[in-house]
Design a binder for these strands. Sequence first.
DNA 1: ATTGAAAATGACAACCATTTCCATTTTTGC
DNA 2: GCAAAAATGGAAATGGTTGTCATTTTCAAT
Lengths: 121, 121
Amino acid sequence: MSKSATKVLQALERVGGFASAQELHLVLKRNQESIGLTTVYRTLQNLVNDKSVDILRKDDGEAIYRLCGDSHHHHLVCKNCGKTVEIEGGAIEKWAQKSGDENGFREIGHTAEIFGICSDC
Amino acid sequence: MSKSATKVLQALERVGGFASAQELHLVLKRNQESIGLTTVYRTLQNLVNDKSVDILRKDDGEAIYRLCGDSHHHHLVCKNCGKTVEIEGGAIEKWAQKSGDENGFREIGHTAEIFGICSDC
DNA sequence: ATTGAAAATGACAACCATTTCCATTTTTGC
DNA sequence: GCAAAAATGGAAATGGTTGTCATTTTCAAT
């Protein structure tokens, strides 16, 4: 399990954030990389087990992955036109960590989105 | 949309925590309630839109639902066993509002979840 | 009470991300 | 070089969820 892992990790770097297995498969296909969808799924599972990759769930239940240790950000999304702004989340990181600690949780992560109506709408 | 909503809410009360749509359908069937699985799904969606019910995702992507408390809160969820703690989100409210203001957004809302591994797991 | 339009219902089929199966290919240890 | 083990990927299966649509129920107007 190595060629595939390398390819998948490269794809994750290229997208630079969260991506679903299917998206990663497409990215690799577009880059002339020959890799099966099954292998992408299997490789992602291995990487998650190795804790090289984080797995999350979108609202619709689809799994999305990202490289561990990526400094991550949040999104401010316009409900009307979809315009998106990237937001730093220092405050929220601390809040999540503190809340987890106080309740005896470990390996704490979080998701957060802000939405509203942008000035153009 | 009322008979079904009542039944689904009763089922949610009976289980007293998180339950999947399929589980709720079974509960209702066991109680001689005649209701279709499709209607259970549709009713749950309506209840989620009304903010009467919370929806979360298990690790395997299956949706689970439960009655929503009245106050706005967030969840600290164990990735392993699903144990859930309700968290006050004062810090995050301010962060969301501030981020939105700074970027000219109005009608600002947000979603946030914290997850980790609880002390029992 | 009767009617008729609009909403709700549910059996069934479609959908789609994910997993399983299995035959083939590649890698590895000797 | 060679056999055993691991990896690969196409096809089929799985399973939760959603879409379809004909039928039933609700309910206000008559």
